[in-house]
Amino acid sequence: MPTPKISVTMPCYNCGETVHKALDSLLGQTCGDFEVVAVNDGSFDNTAGILAEYARRDSRIRILSIEHGGVVAAANAAIKAARGRYIARMDADDESLPGRLEAQSRLLDDSPDIGLVGCRIRFGGCRESCAGYAHYVDWTNTVVSHEAISLNRFVEFPVPNPSIMYRRECVNEHGMYRDGDFPEDYELLLRWLEAGVRMEKVDEELLVWNDPPTRLSRNHPRYDVDAFYRIKSVYLARWLARNNPLHPVVHILGSGRITRKRADLLLAHGVKFAAYYDIDPRKIGHVVNGVSVVDRNDIPGAGEAFCLPYVGSRGAREDITDFLRGRGYELGRDFIPVA
């Protein structure tokens, strides 16, 4: 077989109810120069049979069967077997819209400085019962440029994993997914950004991101909120060491229990807190573990403090950003959001 331009890597585990839709969406792409590397990760339902049937119908579908080792092992096995110049990720419960591979590969063709591309995504779940996930999807669709992705990397995962396509050189130089007590996809993105990989999104909806109850991010402890903050803190501390002119001292926006719990993870990495800032008069004036809670209006002037907004309630990030910018603070220079 000729070497394809694009390899779509797809871990498959007990996905017999959904994988046919994922494969149909790939076989319906406007770009035909691709292969699908589907890794059957020890499934015990009818996944293997479905994959075999699709492979008989279309030679672009290649199947690897491995003992069940989890999504990281399956994803890395697919990457190792991929032959394409560009490598895309696809989950077996999602659907790629017809122009996805063409649009993403074109962006990589036209922009040699970009290493990884994503796209805007369409939420495929119930917005009423899964409102949190839906709001997250809406937020990711506002983060399109490299600058936006870079400056929002510590808020949430800005480029959903099933939507990515990247150059083979990126994985060769910066490594595949790592296994651990953290979300492997978020860790990879943070690691590649730290290494200088430029990332951009095609400003179009190109993926339907479904939200079944069996989705790993809903059920596995490596994807819970605490796991995200643990790995986030590792990379945030290193980012601060390079970018905070007042390092290791930071000023924390927010003083609630959850804010303090998450911010405290930085202390193990040598970061020091000058103060917490709040707008709640019941908290102002308190001292927590030797750190004072100060009225937000008393924050130092721009250039005299580096701030980390840790308040994650809806609308709070925007409010804090507007407040800091009104005081002359510049995103990335004087503050970076982390919730």
Rank of each mutant, 00 (worst) to 15 (best):
Y229F: 15
R83Y: 00
G125P: 06
S25L: 06
V155D: 07
R57E: 13
V291L: 09
G124L: 03
Y277D: 09
V311G: 07
S43M: 06
I164C: 10
G315L: 07
G180Y: 04
V36F: 08
P221H: 02
H174D: 08
G270V: 04
G16D: 14
G180T: 04
R57L: 14
P160V: 14
L246I: 05
P213M: 07
N172Q: 14
R106M: 13
F44Y: 11
Y310H: 05
T321Y: 00
K272G: 01
E95N: 02
E156M: 12
G196S: 07
D319P: 00
G16F: 05
R60L: 06
S292H: 09
N219V: 06
H251C: 12
S255F: 04
N297L: 10
R296D: 04
L236A: 07
R314P: 02
G328C: 06
A302H: 03
T142Y: 00
G175R: 00
G254L: 05
E173N: 14
G312N: 04
R230D: 15
S163R: 01
S145D: 09
E173A: 15
C119S: 15
Y136V: 08
D203S: 13
D179H: 11
H220F: 01
V39G: 06
I121D: 03
L189Q: 14
G270F: 00
I66M: 12
L216H: 04
K232C: 12
R89F: 13
G49F: 06
G125F: 10
E194R: 10
A274I: 01
N14L: 04
H251M: 05
G270P: 04
P158K: 01
V155H: 03
E53W: 12
I231Y: 02
M199I: 14
Y310C: 15
H68C: 14
M165A: 06
F323N: 03
F335R: 04
V311E: 05
N161T: 08
D33K: 02
A78F: 01
A227M: 06
R257Y: 08
G285V: 03
H135Y: 11
G301H: 01
V249Y: 07
I114G: 07
Y223Q: 06
K21P: 00
H135N: 12
I61H: 07
R238K: 10
M1W: 02
E304L: 11
H146C: 01
I50M: 05
R257H: 12
E95H: 05
L206A: 07
A88F: 03
F323P: 02
E169S: 15
L193N: 08
P98D: 09
N289S: 13
A241Q: 13
M1K: 10
N219A: 08
D322Q: 11
L216Q: 11
I114D: 10
A227C: 09
N244I: 01
R282S: 14
V293F: 12
R56K: 13
R296L: 15
T30F: 02
P162I: 01
M1C: 05
R314D: 14
P300K: 01
D113L: 03
G42M: 04
A88R: 00
S217E: 13
I121H: 00
D322H: 09
I114P: 08
